[in-house]
Simulated assay, not measured.
Amino acid sequence: MNVRFDLDPSLTPELRDGICALWAEVSNAGGAVGFVPPVTREDVRPELLKHLTAMAEGRQRLVAGRDADGRVVATAFLTTNTHRLMKHWLWVYTVMVHPDLQGQGTGRRLMASVADAARSVKGITALRLTCRGGSGARPFYEACGYQEVGRVPGAIRLADDDYRDDITMWLDLG
Rank of each mutant, 00 (worst) to 15 (best):
R4H: 15
R4T: 15
F5T: 03
D6F: 14
D8W: 11
T12R: 10
G18L: 10
G18S: 11
G18K: 05
A32N: 05
A32H: 05
P37L: 11
E42K: 09
V44W: 00
R45P: 02
E47A: 05
L49Y: 09
K50Q: 11
H51E: 09
L52R: 06
L52S: 14
R61A: 10
R66T: 12
D67C: 11
A68S: 11
G70Q: 10
V73F: 00
A74H: 02
A76C: 10
T82V: 15
H83D: 07
R84Y: 13
L85R: 14
L85H: 13
K87Q: 15
H88N: 15
H88A: 13
L90K: 04
W91Y: 12
V92C: 08
Y93D: 15
V95R: 04
M96W: 02
V97H: 00
H98L: 02
L101N: 05
L101Q: 04
L110Q: 03
A112Y: 01
V114L: 09
A115D: 03
R119T: 10
A126W: 06
R128F: 04
L129D: 02
L129K: 05
T130G: 11
G133N: 06
G136C: 02
R138L: 12
Y141N: 08
A143D: 12
C144Y: 03
C144E: 11
G150R: 05
G150M: 09
P153C: 09
L158P: 03
D161V: 13
D162A: 15
R164E: 02
